[in-house]
Design a protein around this nucleic acid. Structure first.
Lengths: 156, 156
DNA sequence: TATTGTTATACTCTATAACTATA
DNA sequence: TATAGTTATAGAGTATAACAATA
């Protein structure tokens, strides 16, 4: 599935877009993204959760928050969160609490069991750490710099 | 959202799991994965396609293939592909062709318009290339090595 | 009047199981 | 009998629009 396994020749006269090494790295990023999702779905399924449910639970395990903000974090419509939290609540993993300051707001928070599931879920996602550990500190710094640029708004 | 923005201190006495630099890189990978997906969905929506439809179209644009193999590539049940290809076919982006060798098989292939949409879709996903271009060849080689290990089966 | 969460609706994706036409 | 694709069904995620309670 690798594009060209681009040996060691250095193509000097191509535009950067066509550099086989860059192309392979771009493709590998796609592969890693796919693998990340597979692992995430698998880990969620291991707890009889869907991906969306696992994401919400993971989010709440960091910090309880109003329904509205969950939707903002997940970049979906608030109306969807109702059902997802409903199912998590039915499973005893999440609860809705009133907000003292604003009675319109409901704060979603993980139960003790929910927090435990969230922790277990996080640990299942370690596939990136092992290969990372083999990198030197300098290599990790290069990687961090690259990822920061890719994560940030540097699309332009 | 960055974990600690871990300056430049070197923590020598921690297990690799807790090294703040590694932790930040792991978190950044999650962020990049999320961004990758947002961009993909946005690009698909720009052509009035769902993510699944865009993935199938992209796959077929590389090589026409039987319905069954699409399901294998997408890691879903073959029955789902019927509907997705139905909708792509209704849009005139994909067509079903008979397989000369086996009359049970239907080969899904992009139309000229479908190939054009797939090409446009691919170009929308360039957000990784620009920061990549700023890396030296050596840095890209390090990155390739890491991604290969993360992409491969090196979970254990 | 504006906002929070919910309900109602419709569409897509998903897995499961049963069906058809080939092999 | 086994396989490729389909159909039927049910559950879940998604967006849109309208609603109740509260601000």
């Amino acid at each position: 599935m690798a594009t060209s396994s681009s040996g060691d020749r250095v193509p000097r006269d191509r535009p950067p877009h066509t550099d086989p090494l860059t192309l392979e790295v771009v493709e590998l990023i796609g592969t890693v993204v796919a693998r990340y999702h597979e692992e995430y779905e698998e880990a969620a399924a291991g707890h009889a959760l869907t991906g969306a449910q696992a994401r919400v639970l993971g989010l709440l395990s960091l910090e309880p928050m109003p329904m509205r903000r969950i939707a903002q974090k997940l970049k979906c419509e608030p109306s969807n969160i109702t059902g997802i939290v409903d199912r998590l609540e039915a499973r005893g993993l999440v609860e809705r609490r009133p907000d003292a300051a604003d009675r319109r707001v409901k704060l979603a928070a993980p139960t003790a069991q929910g927090a435990e599931v969230a922790r277990s879920l996080r640990e299942s996602l370690d596939f990136a750490r092992e290969p990372l550990a083999e990198l030197s500190r300098e290599e990790r710094l290069v990687l961090r710099g690259l990822l920061r640029r890719m994560a940030g708004g540097a699309t332009t």
